[in-house]
Each structure stands twice: as structure tokens, then as C-alpha cells.
Design a protein around this nucleic acid. Sequence first.
DNA 1: CATATTTGAAAGTATTACTATTATATTTGT
DNA 2: ACAAATATAATAGTAATACTTTCAAATATG
Lengths: 224, 224
Amino acid sequence: MAILTFKLNEHLYLRDPQHTKLGQNIISKSVALIDQLGFEQFTFKKLAKEIDSTEASVYRYFENKHRLLHYLISWYWSWLEYKVELAIVNLQHPEERLKACLRTIAEEKKFDPSFEFVDEEALYRIVVDELDKTYLTKWVDLDNKDGLFGSFKSLCKKIAGIIQEINPDYEFPNALVSTALLASKQQYFFLSHLPSLSNIKQDKFKHAKLYEFLETLVFNTIKK
Amino acid sequence: MAILTFKLNEHLYLRDPQHTKLGQNIISKSVALIDQLGFEQFTFKKLAKEIDSTEASVYRYFENKHRLLHYLISWYWSWLEYKVELAIVNLQHPEERLKACLRTIAEEKKFDPSFEFVDEEALYRIVVDELDKTYLTKWVDLDNKDGLFGSFKSLCKKIAGIIQEINPDYEFPNALVSTALLASKQQYFFLSHLPSLSNIKQDKFKHAKLYEFLETLVFNTIKK
DNA sequence: CATATTTGAAAGTATTACTATTATATTTGT
DNA sequence: ACAAATATAATAGTAATACTTTCAAATATG
């Protein structure tokens, strides 16, 4: 069986966590803890306790908890891009490819056994709840210079490219894709916490409905 | 001259800041300080120093800085709804009214002398940078029960109503409006910090371009 | 003018986000 | 197999934050 890992921007960490047992522990337990406590309540001290290590040891892998969040979320976007690539392979028409992208974005995220120490279901909840905290900070511009948003940009660019194939005259492909990606997680958040801001119900059809919403939004918007 | 004030949900504050000199000072200086420092770096201690008062006094008006942020942002949505109401008065066709809404959302926010102690330009920057921090917390559901999101919901509902007039068959009016409102501030953020996620340039046409993006997005999406 | 209420001043607490130091494991090269 | 290099654990310490408490002084209100 092929072993898959993503090459993530090296500014995300001090020591690559994928290469050591402790590092892998940091990743998998921090996903569980942030999911459980929320990012604000999550601390390196609590994490260290969980993995039977110390705060100082965690700090040797990540500069601070903010960079760790960046790392996890970058990992998520890389994973999603990989899933998108699988979904569009062999599809001829750009319309088909775009639909496959939106389906991948909207679909339920299930545990992927290709990546042992990452629980994708928990990670998706983290993305929904905490993504915006990676860029709504006073360090955005510095973080951007360090390339920390590379994974997200790469995914956006890929999908925006398909939109341009469908309608080269549409003026806002990147704005539309970033809006659709963020809207998908926002609506997912709203349907459980602020349902009056959505029209998608909390039931077994939510992923299908979210896809419908996205498809109409994107395809109608770019129609010539 | 008529004096305008907004009736904001009373769970937002402990003591109504609009009624006292100290309260008004808290509002106007916190807008300036949050704009300057960002919400994370803003503290009641720093605020107290600025207004020549004490931390304890500020705590008598607001339970914590999070509720103060809620207060400011609720004020903003109430103000925007008021501006939207002015903009659509006397317009017959729902299409015209919807366009007027989107124009109000996208347009440059300028200081409004009707409200002496609120700097709307600074407050808009706060909304762009900090809005999401009002709901991406572990207290969303409690805050929602307290009605803290009432102002935002009210604005959404109003615009969603117009959409339903235009196309009663469109299934996601609330989702579309919340998406468009959040997209407008996200794109505004991206164009200065992560320009590759937008297609709107940082120039004097940015508000017009943002409007164009929103108009296409909303009108195409709901087209029958 | 007496009373209630609001504010100011000062100090105190638990937690957080780190940093530093030193000792002990563990890995690695030869 | 062993010395040297490196990683980790244990412990302690710091400045800042997000509050709370107490009490006295000022101000407003009936």
C-alpha cells in the first residue's frame, strides 16, 4: 500500500511532526483536544498532559498554538485538494469537473484510513469552527509572506481555473471560489447554531442540500 | 434635528452605555482602540487608561470584552438596516429594492453625523476584521438564546423577504443573503490581505466592483 | 438634604503563553 | 559497542490577561 503524506510549508512548524512518534502524537491529540475544547480553551499545557509529555517539548515542534492551528488547517486543504484531484480525474467537460469539485466540498467528511494519525471528521469540525482564526489576526500579512495560506490558495486556484474554462468572460472566479468554499463551512455552522441564517435543515439530507445550494450559486453566477 | 438611537438587545450590556457620559466614552474609545490594536490586543485595562477611568468601572457596563464587541457589531447591523430602509423607501419593484440593498451593503462607509459618538468608518473596519469572533465561540448557543444576533438576523430577514418576492421558488434565500453579507466583508478583507483570493483590486473602484460581484452573484443565483 | 447609586483606587487571583535551565534518555556515526 | 550529538522530561519562572473584591469618594435623585 502506498503511503501518502503532504508536503506542507516548512514555516508551519519548527520540527516536522510527521517524522517522530512525539510529533504524530501532537498532531492526533491536538485534533482531538481542539475539537473537544475549542481553540481558545486549548493550550499546550493541556495537550502535553494528554500525550504524557511537557509544554517545552511541544514548543520545540510548533512556535505557538496559532501555528499549530495553521498546520492542521493547511493539512485539511491539502487533503481536500487531493480528494478533488481524484474526483475530477478522467472527467472531460469542465462543467462535470466543477460539479465534482463542489460535490467533494459539500460531501460528508469521513475518516480516511490513508492517514493514520489524523481524524478527518474531527478536523472538519475544526475547520468549520476555527478556520477564520488563521487569517483574522494581526499577523495575516506576515503569515501570508511565510506562505502559510498556500494550501488554501492552491485549491482555490485549481477550481477558479475550471470556472475560467467554462466562462472566460466571468470577471470574479477567485472571489466566487473563495466565497463558495467559505460559504459551505459557514452554512454548515449556521445550520446547527443559527438556523435562521440558513435554509438547510439539520437532517440526513444536509450534504445534498448544501451541494444544491452551491451548485445553483456557482453555476448560475457564471452563466453567460 | 431628530435624535436617533437604536434599541439594542438588553443582554448586550449590564448598564446602558448610551445614557451616561462614561458609557458614551466607553463606546467611542473602544471603537478607536479595537480598530487600532485589534480585538485580541484590546483590553479593558487599556481602555480604562484611555478614558481616565478604571477597569472595574468598565466592567459595570459590560460583562466582558466579548459582549462589548457584540454590542458594537449589533449597533453596526442596526445602523446598516436603517440605511437600507432609507435606501429602499418609495421603490416599487422588488428588483430595484434588492439592488438598493446590495448597493448599501457594498458602498463605502462614511462617518454619519446623526450618531455623534460612533465612528462608522472605524466600526466598519472592526466588522470586517472581528465580526466572526462574535459567533465562532463556545458560547454561540447561549448568546443566541440571549438574542445577541437579533440585529444581524433582522437585516437578513428583510433582504431575504425581497428575494422571495422576486422568486418565491428559490429555495435558499436566507442562506444566500447571509452568504452575500459575509462575502462582502470577506472580499473586502481579502483584497487588502490575500489578494489572490479575490479579483477586486485595491483602488478607487473597489466598492463599485464589490457591488458588481454581489449583484451578479445574487441576481443570477435567484433567476428563474 | 438625606439617601441611594455610581465611580475611582487599589489590591488580589487564577490562567495563559511563553522562556530558561538542567538532567536524563535516545539516536547516530564509527 | 561506545562516544558524541540530539531529543525529551522535569521544574521553575515571568509578564500579561481577564477578571473579582473591597472600600471610600463623588454624584445624582427624590
